[in-house]
Computed example of a mutant assay.
Amino acid sequence: MKKISILGSTGSIGTQTLDVVAMHPEDFAIDGLAAGSNTALLLEQCRRFKPRRVSVGSKALADEIRSSLPDGTELFYGEEGLVEIAAGGEAEMIVTALVGSVGLESTLAAIEAGRNIGLANKETLVTAGHLVMEAVRRTGVSLLPVDSEHSAIFQCLNGENRRDIAGITITASGGSFRDYSRAELSNVTVEDALRHPNWSMGAKITIDSATMVNKGLEVIEARWLFDLPYEQIHVLLHPESIIHSFVEFQDSSIIAQLGSPDMRVPIQYALTYPQRLVSPAKSLSLAETGRLTFREMDLVRYPALRMAIESGKAGGTAPTAFNAANEIAVARFLRREIPFLRIEEIIDEVLQRHQNTASPDLQQIKECDAAVRTLAAGL
């Protein structure tokens, strides 16, 4: 039985990870759960899965739930609590399902503790890919992608010689506004943006899908996961979200991974690799699907994707600045402080002012992240 801890257990990926665990109780046990402020759901998860260790976002929240936890459950809180769940206990694998750069230090702590990683927190590689991958190489742990696109590429490369890769293509649904012109985006609402046509995701990732920031973060993540130059990483619009990504080889052969749009499939594959178990997801019927369509990615229509790729190519602290600016801008949009198109404008203004630092250490990354957040909050 594999022992698992989940960072971000009450979010979209965290709850779907627990769906997988619940379907295979003989294969998995929960060692630790870390959540932010959704203590009601966390307590429900504790009663059902009986983790030995739990963490919440603050001391006040910890004091609030302490008496409601099952006997013997260790309780932690804050950033130190995330690190305890990630690096302490008996978990063999840590599923990093946190949203945003908050997952970086706990992921690094888990790697240093020799834990295998199921990575759903793409911002970890976006902000500090050089540090994370160096730690993975040094410790010899496994870092398995949970994002559907990166899981697809990982599966397509099984048994293949990496030197034979001509390129990889990450598919994109296009998000909530894929059929909107730029002019039509001027007056869209938060509710409009949160209605993703294909996937069930958290609010922040759904907004990132609408701006195509999410795809930009995935391009940067793919650069680190698969050690490929940006020139070999492509993005293609695929509204049906059936082909999750594909790889082209030097002989012009293409291997793609297909499936219904259900995150529990790549989550489960990361948990069980190299084995496959029966999945809770619906089986794909291509006959029912009927047809698959594709469109070239328009970087004028989606300037945030262009800025993400440019930041990735620049390296250093540029991806950190891009990500931090976006996190603040999206939070402001969700609070209805700014219109939708202002998200891209804030990212652009931040990047125009950013002084890049090459090969940053963790402290420099944290300082850049904090400074950009302050700047973006005031723009």
Rank of each mutant, 00 (worst) to 15 (best):
E218I: 07
E218Y: 06
E218V: 04
V219H: 08
V219L: 01
V219E: 11
I220T: 13
I220S: 07
E221Y: 08
E221G: 05
E221R: 07
A222G: 12
A222M: 03
R223D: 00
R223L: 00
R223S: 14
R223C: 06
W224H: 15
W224Y: 15
L225K: 12
F226K: 09
F226D: 12
F226Y: 10
D227K: 10
D227Y: 02
D227Q: 15
P229H: 03
Y230M: 03
Y230I: 14
E231K: 15
E231V: 11
Q232V: 08
Q232I: 10
I233K: 08
I233N: 11
H234I: 01
H234C: 02
H234R: 15
V235D: 13
V235R: 06
V235A: 00
L236V: 07
L236K: 13
L236W: 02
L236C: 14
L237S: 08
P239Q: 00
S241G: 09
S241P: 12
I242D: 12
I242W: 09
I243P: 10
H244D: 00
H244Q: 07
H244N: 05
H244W: 02
S245I: 02
S245V: 05
F246Q: 12
F246V: 04
F246L: 15
F246E: 08
F249S: 13
F249C: 11
Q250K: 15
Q250G: 08
D251A: 13
D251K: 12
D251Y: 07
D251C: 12
D251Q: 10
S252G: 03
S252A: 13
S253G: 08
S253D: 11
S253T: 15
I254W: 01
I254A: 03
I254E: 06
I254H: 02
I254P: 04
I254T: 12
I254Q: 04
I255E: 02
I255K: 15
I255P: 01
I255D: 01
Q257H: 14
G259K: 03
G259T: 09
S260I: 05
S260H: 14
D262M: 06
D262W: 05
M263Y: 10
M263F: 03
M263W: 05
M263Q: 06
R264Y: 05
R264S: 02
V265S: 13
V265A: 14
V265H: 00
V265F: 01
P266T: 06
P266K: 11
P266Y: 00
I267Y: 02
Q268R: 03
Q268G: 03
Q268D: 09
Q268N: 10
Q268P: 11
Y269C: 01
A270C: 14
A270N: 09
A270S: 15
L271F: 09
L271T: 15
L271S: 11
T272S: 14
Y273K: 05
P274K: 00
Q275W: 03
Q275V: 11
Q275N: 15
R276Y: 09
R276D: 12
R276H: 09
R276N: 06
R276M: 05
L277I: 13
L277D: 13
L277G: 12
V278N: 09
V278Q: 11
V278F: 01
V278L: 06
V278K: 12
S279P: 13
P280M: 00
P280Y: 00
P280H: 04
A281R: 06
A281W: 03
A281F: 06
K282R: 15
K282Q: 15
K282H: 14
S283L: 02
S283G: 04
L284T: 07
L284A: 09
S285V: 10
L286D: 13
L286F: 08
L286E: 07
